Simulated assay, not measured.
Amino acid sequence: MRMLDEDADSNDVAVSASDQEAINAFSRFNSRISEAEDELKAKKEEKEATDEVVMELELVDEEEQVPYKMGDSFIHILQPQALEFLERDSKRLDTDIEELKKTVDECEEGMEKLKVVLYGKFGNNINLERGD
């Protein structure tokens, strides 16, 4: 058994209720960023796939019916209507991507503010860096 000397306690800092709230807020921001980044990645991949389908459909005759996925099913519609639906989907994806980027930016800003406060009080006794 090892005895602690008085210098070992000098690194201990009391955690107040407001400190714990700040730590919890930081954790919530971190979780929201992770979720938003995962969703952002999926939306970007979906947008890329949509753009590829649009390019392929532009090569198809306008009188030809093409399968279009609605929900869990495919319906056959004319090429111009499919392109119209894909344009709408592409705009929706652009909006979703911008909103997710905004969410990530807001969370990062909140985390930076909390880092200043928490590192100021706890110094090296706390690790607030994201583990990517």
Rank of each mutant, 00 (worst) to 15 (best):
M1T: 13
R2C: 06
L4E: 14
D5F: 03
E6G: 07
E6S: 15
D7T: 02
D7Y: 01
S10W: 03
S10Q: 10
S10V: 09
V15R: 11
V15Q: 12
V15F: 06
A17T: 10
A17K: 10
S18G: 00
S18F: 03
D19C: 13
E21G: 06
A22N: 13
I23G: 03
N24C: 00
N24G: 00
N24P: 00
A25L: 09
F26Y: 08
R28A: 11
F29I: 00
N30M: 06
R32A: 13
I33W: 02
E35G: 05
A36F: 04
L40M: 09
L40R: 09
A42G: 06
A42I: 08
K44G: 05
E46M: 14
K47P: 04
E48V: 09
A49M: 02
A49N: 08
T50H: 03
D51M: 14
V53I: 14
V54W: 05
V54G: 04
M55N: 11
M55L: 11
L57S: 00
E58C: 00
L59W: 00
L59F: 00
D61G: 08
E62Q: 11
E62N: 13
E63F: 12
E63P: 02
E64N: 06
E64F: 06
E64D: 09
K69N: 12
K69D: 12
G71I: 04
D72G: 07
S73K: 14
I75E: 08
H76E: 13
H76M: 12
Q79V: 06
A82W: 01
E84Q: 08
E84N: 08
L86Q: 10
S90H: 12
R92N: 11
L93F: 06
D94V: 08
D94R: 10
D94A: 13
T95N: 07
T95G: 03
D96V: 06
D96Q: 14
D96M: 09
D96N: 10
D96C: 03
I97H: 10
E98G: 07
E98D: 15
E98S: 15
L100I: 03
E106V: 00
C107K: 04
C107G: 04
C107I: 01
E108F: 01
E109I: 02
E109L: 06
G110N: 04
M111C: 01
K115M: 04
V117Y: 11
V117L: 15
L118P: 05
Y119H: 15
G120Q: 09
F122E: 12
F122W: 13
G123P: 09
I126H: 09
I126L: 15
N127A: 12
L128P: 06
E129C: 07
E129P: 02
G131A: 04
G131Y: 01
D132H: 11
